[in-house]
Design a binder for these strands. Sequence first.
RNA 1: GGCUCGUUAGCUCAGUUGGUAGAGCAGCGGAUUGAAAAUCCGCGUGUCCUUGGUUCGAUUCCGAGACGAGCCA
Length: 313
Amino acid sequence: MKTLPSAIFIMGPTASGKTATAMHLLESGLPVELISVDSALVFKDMDIGTAKPTPAELARAPHHLIDIIDPTAVYSAAQFRLDALALMADITARGKVPVLVGGTMLYFNTLEQGMHDLPVANAELRAQLHQEADLIGWPAMHSKLAALDPITAARLEPNDTQRIERALEVCILSGKAMSAILAEPAREILPYDPLKIALVPSDRAVLHQRIALRFDQMLDGGLFDEVKMLREKYPLNLDLPSMRCVGYRQAWEYLEGEVDLKVCREKGLAATRQLAKRQLTWLRGMNNLHTLDCNATNLTQLAQNLCATHITI
RNA sequence: GGCUCGUUAGCUCAGUUGGUAGAGCAGCGGAUUGAAAAUCCGCGUGUCCUUGGUUCGAUUCCGAGACGAGCCA
């Protein structure tokens, strides 16, 4: 029986020390290459608010899938899966082990579980659906979905705008109900043997302190200037995924004069904590995790030991 | 020192014509298939500052005290 090539996943909430851990693995001499699993780090020129590794860090420890698209562009879990699998194949062919490190749990999930054959997003159709929703409201759009795909409509809340829109889009583009496509058994399996390491805080209050510290460093470090620069350089608006990133949305509102500095900071902190919470929810639902306490002082060493064992086997 | 206003959930405050109270934010839990750092759903017992009085019953009305803010000396 043929054994699958190794891969390493390093997952954890924001500010849990993922980047430091991944860099340590590389610098400790293990034969690895790093792939970022982060829906915000893909954007060029968004450095401060995303806590992107510094140019010096990236020079020492190159990460794939950082700075790959403009802030006006849209990325997706499906695109990530294609990109990551291509990179993983290259890395493995070079005799190395891919280390996937990041906090976008849907991307990890998609990479591992695969996706069904759903139609790609269509901006024109979405614009039409939006127009219609403005007229009749999302609960009415939910009713329309119920006529086309009652199973999907039943599991979606009438206010879950994104999922209702997507389900309608799938029905219209494919001519089939989304639920029918998802019911088909075919699922691609990840052709790798992943060692899944989760960095989880033993005490969430400590993580919240680190989040607060890091957010204040972003404000001091020029987050507002970065957002100003982005708005001058690109035709951006608040509906773009890039400007919905935590910190950017709040900085945008501050620059528009909609909120004062204190409210901007509070909302930014709250959004970051909510993000960490959702990331932890994902981790709780995942199987075969090796969980490490991200507050542990010897975190990087523990991770290195785990990986060394996995790679030699 | 005198006067005025305030004291209710972790925070900011509603409210109870007297029948022991509820919003926003925070916090916690959950969902999640091409936007996911997105989108959405669920969760509220707290000496209603303390103490006396009136009352069948006071967080609510009255008196006294404590603390805070403002104004006047």
